[in-house]
């Protein structure tokens, strides 16, 4: 005998953990990152001239640790937004579930793949 609550295991945990990881990462470091890349670096406040130079940025993206940081930040931030947008669009009954998933999780998956491809293309 099973109650009404017993149904198949959901795959939501995958998306939920990615959402949670992105949420935590952005909550801990998001404001700091935005201050650095959005204000201090472009305005040259407290940072040397060459901070945003092509060579400097390239060196960062060629460094394995830099690569990992870029991948983790960009991918997880997208997965975080994707989960929240998906659930809200579902609340709004904005469309069939599959379409909403493609527009949210799908975008996050494509961006993740693209980041990996670009980081590989940039080389070591």
């Amino acid at each position: 005998m099973t109650g009404p609550a017993r149904d198949n295991r959901s795959i939501s945990p995958i998306f939920w953990l990615l959402f949670g990881a992105g949420g935590m990462l952005s909550a801990l470091f998001g404001p700091g990152l935005i201050l650095i890349t959005g204000f201090f670096a472009p305005l040259g406040v407290g940072l040397p001239e060459n901070f945003l130079s092509y060579d400097h940025a390239l060196a960062f993206a060629q460094n394995p640790v830099g690569k990992l940081a870029v991948l983790v930040v960009v991918a997880l931030f997208f997965w975080h937004g994707a989960e929240r947008l998906f659930l809200t669009l579902k609340d709004m009954k904005a469309g069939p579930s599959l379409l909403l998933k493609l527009c949210t999780y799908g975008v996050a998956a494509v961006v993740t793949a693209a980041v990996i491809a670009l980081l590989l293309a940039i080389g070591f």
Binding site: G3, P4, A5, R6, D7, N8, R9, S10, S12, P13, W16, L87, D91
Partner: peptide, 13 residues
């Protein structure tokens, strides 16, 4: 094990 489904905890937002 009774709450791993969409009708379990995963309907909660």
């Amino acid at each position: 094990d009774t709450i791993h489904g969409e009708n379990g905890v995963w309907s909660c937002t």
